[in-house]
Design a binder for these strands. Structure first.
Lengths: 234, 234
DNA sequence: TCATTCAGTAAACAACCGTTCTCTGACTTT
DNA sequence: AAAGTCAGAGAACGGTTGTTTACTGAATGA
């Protein structure tokens, strides 16, 4: 399409990303409908008018944040469901993956949880659409599994919806268990792993609060799995 | 305590309630952290400064709205769980009750859904506390049921949490199925039932969209009930 | 009856908001 | 090398915000 990989476009996308990052950071302590355009540009260090070169308004930026937030998680879950089989193993892997994702991208999933029912229509709709796609994919992953003969498409989607909803709730529960982390991640890009001291351990370790939530989610998922197994015999 | 049932106090509480109602109406299309103090007083028709006679700030008003929103629902669910027994009957009654409550108090539950993870800390905490109490009560209601021998307290709370979370999600699903209802309920007080023509039917009738949600919730709850029944046999 | 309380008024305050203009200067294309 | 594009700067605009001040006048208690 555009045959210009030039320095121009690169710089533009750089400040665009800076705007997204700044917004995400500010959204840790307020909701989108109260986030000001000037507030964002001030953090980035550009003039307020520059905002309009990238987004129509804050709602537009919000929709972009939805894609950024759910895009990667999307691929991740798909991978887990594909390569594992057996209920318990899948449950274990999923819960651990969600916990890890929340730890590495707290601001993103906080944003999703906050704006899922928030005050900005387009953002709500974008999130709903993404979660719907999620449900479709989970249902599809179930369908290729051997243990779902005799399940109608509607029942499969019902079950998938149950899992997706529970995943979202577990994620937000993990979030609330986390410390406040007043200064924003920074995360993405090449900046290297911040293996600071203190609490937040590496891949395996969990806070006590986190462990309790993981255990709860674990048991709830197991109960659902049992219900699924006996679905067709009264 | 205060031996003054006077006209004074009555008028004060009247405008206090007017402020709450106005805020709730305005919150249909934005979130609390963006709702202005002046915006509310303007709708009510009082001077901005009058606001401070009733609330410290908008967060304070938000906490009051939480009590108003979840207080009544609270008693309702407790009643249902007490007087029914048998899974299917309980499920049926609960889903219907939630649907009815959403239809009669849409603004309240929209507020709860929106601010549960919203940008105002005290409000979030108030909602979390209320939902926690909910979970406790459901767990307690289960405990008196005959069919829960051998269940640990932790498992009972786990199950109750599953039900409460699902109830909240079902309620918000019902909400999204509703038309926009641009002018706010008015509801409470003596103003009489607005049995307008058109869609929203009486106690029994449901929209097509509502019926689909009810059916989905139904099946999901049944699956959980089955899982519960086989919880203790692999 | 008189003094007191206090819900609500009216006005002013500095601070901030989103949006619109014109302008500049580094990059791109020809 | 000249012409064109376009991300961002800078300033100005009308409007709204939360909060404070001094005030009024009807309901209250002695």
């Amino acid at each position: 399409m555009s045959h210009t990989p030039g320095v121009r476009q690169a710089q533009k996308q750089k400040t665009r990303q800076a705007l997204l990052d700044a917004a995400l950071r500010l959204l840790a302590e307020q909701s989108l409908s109260s986030l000001g355009l000037r507030e964002v540009t001030r953090v980035v260090g550009v003039a307020p008018a520059a905002f309009y070169r990238h987004f129509r308004d804050m709602a537009d930026l919000g929709v972009a944040l939805v894609e950024e937030s759910l895009g990667s998680l999307h691929g991740m879950i798909r991978g887990i469901l594909a390569e594992r089989d057996g209920d318990d193993e899948r449950i274990e892997a999923t819960v651990l993956a969600v916990a890890e994702y929340v730890r590495t991208h707290p601001a993103h999933i906080r944003f999703i949880a906050r704006e899922r029912h928030g005050g900005v229509r387009p953002v709500r709709e974008a999130i709903a659409a993404q979660l719907d796609r999620f449900t479709d994919e989970v249902a599809e992953a179930f369908q290729v599994g051997l243990e779902y003969r005799g399940w109608s498409a509607a029942d499969l989607r019902m079950l998938a919806g149950l899992y997706v909803d529970h995943m979202v709730m577990t994620a937000t529960a993990f979030l609330e268990a986390q410390p406040v982390r007043d200064v924003g991640e920074g995360a993405e890009g090449g900046a290297g792993a911040d293996q600071g001291a203190g609490e937040g351990a590496g891949a395996g370790g969990m806070t006590e609060a986190e462990r309790r939530i993981a255990d709860l989610a674990h048991r709830q998922l197991r109960l659902v799995a049992i219900g699924r197994r006996h679905w067709h015999d009264g």
